[in-house]
Design a protein around this nucleic acid. Sequence first.
DNA 1: GACCCGTGGTC
DNA 2: TGACCAAGGGT
Length: 288
Amino acid sequence: MPEPTFLREPILDWYAENARDLPWRRPDATPWGVLVSEIMLQQTPVSRVLPVWTEWMARWPTPAALAAEPPGEAVRRWGRLGYPRRALNLHACARTITAEHGGEVPSDHATLLSLPGVGEYTAAAVASFAFGGRHAVLDTNVRRVLARAVRGEQYPPRSTTAAERALAEALLPEVGAPTWSVAVMELGALVCTARAPRCAACPVAHLCRWRLSGSPEGPPRKGQAYAGTDRQCRGRLLAVLRQAHGPVPKQALDVVWDDAVQRERALDALVADGLAEPLPDGTYRLPV
DNA sequence: GACCCGTGGTC
DNA sequence: TGACCAAGGGT
């Protein structure tokens, strides 16, 4: 395997020339802005996050501002970003930060990790990008770049392994770790893409082990079915609650999904997740 | 580790 | 056209 540190210079030079100008990367971005961006970006493309993030920052520039709202308002303003529990998580983050951390986003990895919806990746990303900390940032982009360039595989393992963490830590420079991390992520997002990698534009194509071995196709990976699932049903039901500006009669929910058994199960799950609230009169609304 | 959780774009 | 994919996390 190529000495992994050989990757650093070319990738950092490439990033200096090709980095996108994203608002949460600007010098005036706050730790809160970074945290909001990282949670919005979970499994969600940048292009869809941009307008929602901008609205959130204008409306709720601090954790305290969001904490003052009912959780349902966060869900409503989440729009169609998907995985709406993230909106609830962000709202809970805001209340915890306001109540227990003096209104300031915590800077250390362990405390970040204790916040709802903040896992290993997000804690490392916020500690790095908002506070300059030195942490291995292993997202799907980084994992794919390292799998190809170093391990010679088309795709990384399905779940993160100890070997991947060890490699990411070994690559982390003593100085400038956050820039290195965002540079690898950017390379994965713009060049070393999952489907049709643009190897002609890649600064490390000449030492990419996967490329050098002929870019062999790995086994096909099964995607998740969606049509007809509870997830799709939940999405339809929640869309009705989001669009309404008050309680909606149950009949308004019934008309968006035919299968009554599945519909009731999904609605119960939304209530259990705190995304919907049943009222005594049989209507439903976003949580207050 | 397996499975669940939304949504829309892409080839 | 439908399968795959996108800065994951929780159970």
